[in-house]
């Protein structure tokens, strides 16, 4: 039983957390892909930016003498989301919109997003150095334990993990309602489907582009903050996460919001399952197993976790190039 609880803690809980973060990031990537038609490589840095804005705001709050039993980060997230959105709209106005106005091809925008990546990374490191920061400076991280009968271990998860997963679910449901019910949400899907026709239908495409950045950046800030609450804030956040979120967006079928969510969780769980030490589950039968079965039985060593998202990506592209949900048709 203890082994089973260990499995829940290390696979179900970790997978849900990683999957939620990937899903939030991948939705932004896939929306930008669907509406603006380019791979936004700076998305990981947008997540990092969001996390750092939360960090700074919680410092400001602490500086104002506010204290609470909860981490101050919880209270500033809405403001951090708003600031990240403003930053994203500003980046679009400064760097992407002029290129679109010139009629640049998507590849040019992709390369521009590399420039934006470098600027954001340079700026964040300029301000915060290369160190790591915690959002739990003043208060301890609350750990929830659910005792399980017949097990020496409890099911454990932290408070930010629980809140993060719940917020993710709320965000996904809200996005679903927005896309299916609201006028602007439907218009967004229409633009993703057929931008020329959307334009001749009188849909203001600039407005839809703004909405795309608002949703993408808002979710990126949530994802970055969630990641920061779960571990720590550091400038390197972005690169480790770029591959999984892009893999999720492509595996889900570019432009497909639901695909991105499903694939986000798929990749999150695949990663934790791949590095999980299956030897633990065999422990109760240790005595009856042959000598040669090693105690460490992970599919890939933890250091090579990055290969998991990649392998899923490549296998998907080879077997089903449009992704699991049929994505926007290839060029």
């Amino acid at each position: 039983m203890s082994e089973f609880v260990f499995f829940i803690n290390n696979v179900i809980v970790s997978g849900l957390v990683a999957g939620s973060i990937y899903a939030l990031g991948a939705v932004g990537v896939t929306l930008i892909f669907g509406i603006l038609r380019f791979a936004h490589f700076a998305h990981g840095d947008m997540m990092t930016l969001g996390a750092f804005i939360t960090l700074v705001l919680s410092w400001v709050l602490a500086g104002m003498g506010v204290s609470s039993g909860l981490p101050l980060a919880y209270f500033v997230v809405p403001l951090a989301v708003a600031i990240t959105i403003v930053a994203a709209l500003g980046l679009d106005r400064l760097f992407y919109a002029p290129l679109r106005a010139k009629g640049a091809k998507p590849v040019t925008l992709l390369i521009a997003s590399i420039g934006v990546t470098m600027m954001l990374q340079g700026l964040i490191r300029l301000l915060f150095g290369t160190g790591t920061y915690s959002l739990f400076d003043t208060v301890p991280k609350v750990i929830h334990r659910i005792p399980v009968e017949g097990s020496t271990r409890d099911i454990t998860f932290t408070q930010p993990q629980a809140i993060g997963v719940i917020v993710t679910i709320i965000a996904v449901v809200a996005l679903h309602l927005f896309l299916k019910r609201s006028r602007n949400g439907k218009a967004m899907r229409a633009v993703a489907d057929n931008p020329d026709l959307a334009q001749v239908s009188g849909i203001n495409i600039r407005k839809i582009v703004r909405l795309t950045w608002i949703i993408g950046a808002g979710l990126a800030c949530l994802a970055g903050t969630f990641l920061a609450l779960d571990v720590t804030v550091k400038p390197d956040l972005a690169f480790n996460i770029l591959l999984p979120i892009f893999a999720a967006a492509i595996v889900g079928g570019v432009g497909q919001v639901y695909g991105a969510i499903v694939a986000g969780y798929l990749i999150g769980f695949a990663e934790v399952l791949a590095v999980f030490n299956w030897g633990v589950l065999l422990r109760p039968f240790r005595d009856s197993l042959p000598e040669w079965v090693p105690a460490q039985l992970a599919i890939v060593p933890t250091e090579y976790k990055v290969t998991v998202a990649f392998v899923i990506l490549v296998v998907t592209l080879l077997l089903r190039p449009t992704g699991i949900f049929r994505g926007a048709s290839s060029t």
């Binding site: 439907k186 899907r189 229409a190 489907d193 057929n194 020329d196 026709l197």
Partner: peptide, 8 residues
């Protein structure tokens, strides 16, 4: 051509 939104 392409005068509908196919996924709507």
């Amino acid at each position: 051509e392409k005068n509908v939104f196919p996924s709507l």
